[in-house]
Computed example of a mutant assay.
Amino acid sequence: MTLTTATAVIDRQALVDNFNRVKTFAPKAKVLAVLKANGYGHGLERIARALPQADAFGVARLDEALALRAAGVVKPIVLLEGFFTEQDLPILAVNNLQTIVHNRQQLDALTRTQLEKPLKVWLKIDTGMHRLGINPEDFDDFYQALSASDNVDPDIVLMSHLGCADDKENPVTNSQLALFEQLTASYNNEKSLANSAGSYAWPQTRYDWIRPGLILYGVSPMAAPEQSAQSLGIKPVMTLQSSLIAVRALKAGEAVGYGAAWVSSEDTTIGVIAIGYGDGYPRHAGNGTPVLVNGRRVPLVGRVSMDMITVDLGKDSRDEVGDLAILWGQGLPVEEIALHATTIPYELLCNITRRVQIEVV
């Protein structure tokens, strides 16, 4: 008997295949691969090393960018939230980091400081998502101020972010696209609008740079269930798995777990799997959430504990202690688990905790 603790298996070839698949959506565009939040839980440095064909990497914050530089990554790196303080700017210059500018405070700091060399800037316009970005009416003023500054590389990238691209029927994307085109049509700068969903579903948004994130990791960015990862031609990069650590008979009418939240309606066999919310498995996954045990689907029953979950193996079960259980990934889409847990795949992938073992294949 060999027991396996909670393990995230990272498939590098699947990642490369997904990257190549995304390239087929926009073969002429450059790719800024998004690695924020520890590479969506897959490992920041690990993912960067596995994608040397990316044209640049996108991270949220300065510490992520510096971690990549410390790991020997020399590709262009873009701070997707921009810099936070004026004191960050010399660090960006020394480490050859690029920054988004999305507010007046950043513009003022960048134009008044003294830098040894200019920074590459991506100017972000709010075209309707109303999160980050300058107001459309301020675009010309910001662009002229950046262009006049010795601290700014003259090749400014113009960008915005799509808020509803996961829904092909939502008119917001066309409205955002129209505004972005209206504002930037007379500029010859490189442009970037497409995120994962835009890269796949909205050809007009692809421009010079696409910024795929979730789709690289083998998860569909689309809202419609029929637009699954498989239908998009992408593969899961992470398979979260563990093993059965107990198998026991349960009689009809007996309960399982905290609060006696699930009671068996018939004689059955219960399996206990060594994984829980302490590993990042969603605590709110409900009864019936599928788990793969020996390749077949069985339902989660009872409440998710910190270190364990229980599944109904069925009265005719032949499963044994040590048998493999897959929580999501190969054969079981993380999107499906997210639906059962009333959350999104992003959260599940990013919530993998430090005690989960990593196996790279």
Rank of each mutant, 00 (worst) to 15 (best):
P236T: 09
V237K: 12
V237F: 08
S242F: 07
S243T: 14
S243H: 11
S243I: 07
R248M: 10
R248F: 03
R248S: 11
A249G: 03
L250Q: 15
K251Q: 13
A252P: 00
G253Y: 08
G257R: 09
G257H: 09
Y258S: 06
G259H: 06
A261F: 00
A261T: 14
W262H: 15
W262M: 13
V263T: 14
S264C: 06
S264H: 02
S265W: 08
D267R: 05
T269D: 00
I270A: 03
I273C: 04
A274Q: 14
A274T: 01
A274V: 01
G276I: 04
Y277H: 15
Y277C: 05
Y277P: 00
G280R: 08
Y281R: 01
P282C: 08
P282M: 08
P282F: 01
R283P: 00
H284Y: 05
H284S: 13
G286F: 07
N287T: 13
G288P: 04
G288N: 10
G288V: 04
T289A: 14
P290W: 02
V291M: 12
L292S: 03
V293S: 04
V293G: 03
V293H: 05
G295L: 02
G295W: 00
R297N: 11
R297C: 06
V301Y: 02
V301A: 10
R303Q: 14
R303S: 14
R303A: 14
V304N: 11
V304S: 12
S305M: 15
M306K: 15
M306G: 07
M308Q: 14
T310D: 05
V311R: 07
V311L: 05
V311P: 02
V311C: 04
D312T: 06
L313C: 03
G314F: 12
K315A: 15
K315I: 14
R318D: 12
D319N: 14
E320C: 10
E320D: 09
G322F: 11
D323T: 11
D323H: 13
